[in-house]
Amino acid sequence: VTTYKLVINGKTLKGETTTKAVDAETSEKAFKQYANDNGVDGVWTYDDATKTFTVTEMV
């Protein structure tokens, strides 16, 4: 189990959250659901070296 981080650069929501998951794909699903639940829709990137997802909304 690995800890993954999500950085949110939204128009109205900014911040970070973490989750523990067995792999990046599992954490990505959880993070995308979290973003969707909070009305964040944007461009996703992933940095495997830091286990960090970033979602950026276009303004």
Rank of each mutant, 00 (worst) to 15 (best):
N36A: 15
K11N: 10
W44K: 00
Y4W: 07
W44R: 00
D23W: 03
A21H: 04
G10V: 12
G42D: 01
E28F: 15
Y4K: 04
A35D: 01
G39W: 04
I8S: 00
Y34K: 02
K29R: 12
E25I: 12
V40K: 01
K29G: 05
A49R: 10
N9H: 11
E25T: 10
E16F: 14
T12I: 12
K5P: 04
L13V: 13
T19E: 05
V43I: 12
T54A: 03
T56D: 09
S27T: 05
D47C: 09
L13E: 06
K51V: 02
T12K: 11
G39S: 06
T26A: 13
N38F: 14
T17Q: 09
S27R: 01
T54M: 07
G15E: 12
F31V: 02
K29C: 06
A30F: 15
Q33K: 14
E25K: 13
Y4H: 03
V22Y: 12
T18Q: 09
T54V: 07
T19Q: 09
A21K: 03
F31S: 01
K5H: 12
A35Q: 01
V7H: 05
G39H: 09
T45I: 06
T17N: 05
D48Q: 09
F53H: 03
G15T: 14
K32F: 05
V22W: 11
G15Y: 15
K20S: 11
N36F: 15
T45F: 09
K20F: 13
G39A: 06
K5G: 02
V40I: 15
N36D: 11
A30R: 13
D41Y: 14
E25Q: 13
M58F: 13
D41M: 12
E16R: 07
K29H: 08
N38T: 06
T56G: 03
D41S: 12
T45N: 08
T19H: 13
V59N: 12
E28Y: 15
E25V: 11
N38S: 08
T26Y: 06
T45P: 00
G15A: 13
K14L: 08
K11D: 07
T45L: 06
A35K: 02
D41F: 15
K32M: 08
Y34L: 07
Y34I: 07
T2Q: 13
F53Q: 01
T2N: 12
Y34S: 01
T50Q: 05
E28K: 12
K20N: 13
V55L: 10
D48I: 07
N36K: 15
T56H: 06
D37V: 09
D37M: 11
W44I: 02
T19P: 02
A24S: 09
K20T: 14
E57M: 07
V43T: 10
T3D: 09
D37L: 11
E57P: 07
V55K: 01
V59K: 10
D47S: 05
T19D: 05
Y4A: 04
V40M: 05
I8Q: 00
T18R: 07
T12E: 09
S27C: 13
S27E: 01
Y4I: 05
Q33L: 09
V55T: 02
N38K: 13
V59A: 13
M58C: 13
T18I: 10
V22A: 12
T56R: 04
N9A: 08
T45C: 09
A49P: 06
D41C: 12
Y46S: 00
D23K: 04
A30E: 12
T45K: 07
D41V: 14
K29M: 09
K11M: 13
K5W: 12
E25M: 13
T17K: 12
V43R: 07
T54I: 08
F53Y: 08
T56S: 08
D48E: 13
T2K: 11
V22R: 11
N9L: 14
V40C: 04
E28P: 00
Y34F: 12
T17F: 15
F53T: 00
M58W: 12
G39R: 05
V1Q: 13
V1L: 15
E57K: 03
A49Q: 11
A24V: 13
D48T: 07
G15F: 15
V40Q: 02
Q33S: 08
A30S: 08
V59Y: 12
T12R: 11
W44H: 00
K14H: 10
A21N: 05
D23Q: 03
K5T: 13
T54E: 05
N9M: 13
F31K: 00
E16Y: 13
A35L: 11
G39L: 06
Y4M: 01
K5R: 13
T45Y: 09
T19A: 09
Y4L: 02
T18A: 07
L13W: 14
N36P: 01
T26H: 10
L6C: 06
V55S: 00
I8N: 00
N9S: 07
V40R: 01
K11Q: 11
K32H: 09
L6G: 02
T17L: 15
K5L: 08
E28H: 11
V55R: 01
I8M: 07
V7P: 01
V43L: 10
T19I: 15
W44P: 00
K14Y: 09
T3N: 07
D48M: 07
V1K: 12
T52A: 03
K51H: 11
T12V: 11
N38Q: 13
Y4N: 03
T19W: 11
A21C: 08
G39E: 05
G10K: 04
T3R: 07
A35C: 15
V59T: 13
K51P: 01
T45G: 05
A24P: 10
V22C: 12
D41N: 12
T26P: 01
G39F: 06
G42K: 00
A24M: 14
V1G: 11
D48K: 08
F53W: 13
K51I: 02
V43D: 08
S27I: 08
M58Q: 11
S27Y: 03
L13K: 09
T50C: 03
A35E: 01
T45A: 08
N38E: 07
T52W: 01
T52H: 02
A30N: 08
Q33A: 11
T50N: 08
V1P: 10
W44L: 02
T19C: 15
A24T: 10
E16Q: 10
D23R: 04
F31C: 01
T2G: 08
V1E: 14
T56F: 07
E25N: 09
N38H: 14
N9E: 09
D47Y: 03
T54N: 04
A30H: 14
V43F: 11
T12D: 09
Y46V: 00
T2V: 12
L6I: 03
G39D: 06
T52Q: 04
N36W: 14
V1F: 14
Y34W: 15
K32E: 03
L13Y: 14
V7E: 04
K11G: 08
G42R: 00
K51G: 04
K20Q: 14
Y34Q: 02
L13C: 15
E57D: 08
A35W: 02
I8P: 00
D23L: 04
N38A: 12
G42C: 02
K20Y: 12
T56L: 05
K29Q: 10
E57W: 06
G15D: 09
L6P: 03
I8T: 02
E28A: 11
T2P: 08
G42L: 03
A30Q: 13
D48H: 09
E16P: 04
E28T: 04
L13G: 08
E57H: 05
A21D: 04
F53R: 00
K51Y: 08
W44G: 00
E28I: 10
A21S: 09
A24E: 07
N9V: 13
T50I: 05
V22Q: 10
A49C: 09
T17I: 15
D23F: 03
G15V: 14
E28R: 12
A24Y: 15
T12P: 03
T26F: 05
W44T: 00
D47I: 03
Q33H: 06
K20I: 14
D23G: 04
V22D: 06
I8Y: 06
V7S: 03
D37R: 08
Q33N: 07
V1T: 12
T45E: 10
E25F: 11
V1N: 10
I8W: 08
L6D: 03
M58G: 10
A24N: 07
V55W: 01
K32W: 06
L6V: 03
E25D: 09
F31R: 00
L13Q: 08
T50M: 05
E16W: 14
E16K: 07
Y4G: 04
T18S: 12
Y4E: 04
T2I: 14
T26R: 06
Q33P: 00
Y34A: 02
